[in-house]
């Protein structure tokens, strides 16, 4: 059998196979039974089964024709609301295949759309509501504008509980003939918490590294996937060496290709780690959180990643040196 990513290979195909999220699954099954559907809004943290639920729902609604009846869009990858609207328009024009009278449009990462774009989306939803249903997927409900929220049935996905994650990991390990120790499982849980996608990715990488997945092997993987430049950059800034910190930033932005927001998130994680926090006076912690939050705001406003993050690093350096 050919190799692929386990997150794809072990993605549930039916609602029954879904891991956890029982309440959500039960209601989705009712929709399938009645072959009717409101607009849906799936909200919850990454790796909790939102996209999988949407795909399972489509499979069970449409049976063998499921691929013909869904349009999958990712708001982060489409170039602007106009492209999204055009694709929706082109798609909604054709009739659904089979006995279900509507087609399903899955719009992933919908909370990455600006509120203007969401307003435009709302009108599009109304325009085509006879022949289509929307399933919007987002990390945060609050980042979806009220008028869209009120038109959707909202499903909240919870982080997957520990037992369910470990059970799934053991099942995959067994199917792949991979030995994993209890401390190995614990280490994966520690890092991934309720994010099953991350947990499975760690397991697959760890199993490539060693025959037995132990705690050590897991940490080895984690050490490799987090660019060491993040920690180095934060430390350099805290030492007041802005120029060297900027060099690290550029490695993250241009050779790792990380987005400004992703770099900002890892700066935040690093600054908030107990090790870093314990070294700074209390008042500075709040100031740093404010600085990072402000930078987040400015990047979302459309600022240039490098200029905004440089400004942050310069301010961190100044604060750390008592300015």
């Amino acid at each position: 059998m050919s190799e692929t990513l386990w997150i794809e290979k072990y993605r549930p195909k039916t609602l029954d196979e879904m891991i956890d999220q029982e309440e959500v699954v039960a209601r989705l099954k009712d929709f399938v039974k009645e072959k009717s559907l409101p607009h849906l809004l799936f909200a919850g943290p990454p790796g909790t089964g939102k996209t999988t639920a949407a795909l399972c729902l489509a499979r069970e609604l449409y049976g063998e024709h499921w691929r013909d009846n869904i349009l999958e869009l990712n708001a982060s990858d489409e170039r602007g609301i106009d492209v999204i609207r055009r694709r929706i328009k082109d798609y909604a024009r054709t009739m659904p295949v089979g006995e279900v009278p509507f087609k399903l449009i899955i719009l992933d990462e919908a909370d990455n759309m600006t509120s203007d774009a969401q307003q435009a989306l709302r009108r599009t939803m109304e325009l085509y509501s006879r022949s289509t249903r929307f399933c919007l997927i987002a990390n945060y409900v609050s980042k979806i504008i009220e008028p869209i929220q009120s038109r959707c049935a909202i499903f909240r996905f919870q982080p997957i509980p520990r037992e369910a994650v470990l059970e799934r990991l053991k099942f995959i390990a067994e199917s792949e003939n991979v030995k994993i120790t209890e401390d190995g499982l614990d280490a994966i849980w520690e890092e991934s918490q309720g994010d099953l996608r991350k947990a499975i990715n760690i397991l697959q990488a760890a199993s490539a590294l060693d025959e037995v997945v132990t705690e050590d092997v897991v940490y080895k993987v984690l050490g490799k996937i987090t660019p060491s430049e993040v920690r180095e950059m934060v430390n350099l800034a805290l030492q007041g060496d802005f120029l060297k910190a900027r060099e690290k930033l550029r490695v993250l932005l241009y050779s790792y290709g990380l987005s400004g927001l992703d770099v900002l998130k890892s700066i935040y994680r690093e600054v908030m780690s107990p090790k870093v926090l314990s070294q700074m006076p209390n008042h500075m912690q709040a100031e740093l959180i404010e600085l990072i939050g402000e930078t987040n705001f400015r990047i979302v406003e459309g600022g240039d990643d490098e200029i905004q993050l440089c400004a942050l690093l310069a301010k961190i350096a100044l604060k750390a040196k008592g300015g």
Partner: peptide
């Protein structure tokens, strides 16, 4: 094929593929 954005792939999937490549 994984039903995610390219940004998610670059951030959450490629690093694992690089680890796998290094080992095997």
């Amino acid at each position: 094929k994984c039903h995610v954005s390219t940004r998610t792939v670059i951030r959450d999937i490629l690093p694992f593929l690089f680890v796998i490549y290094e080992a095997d």
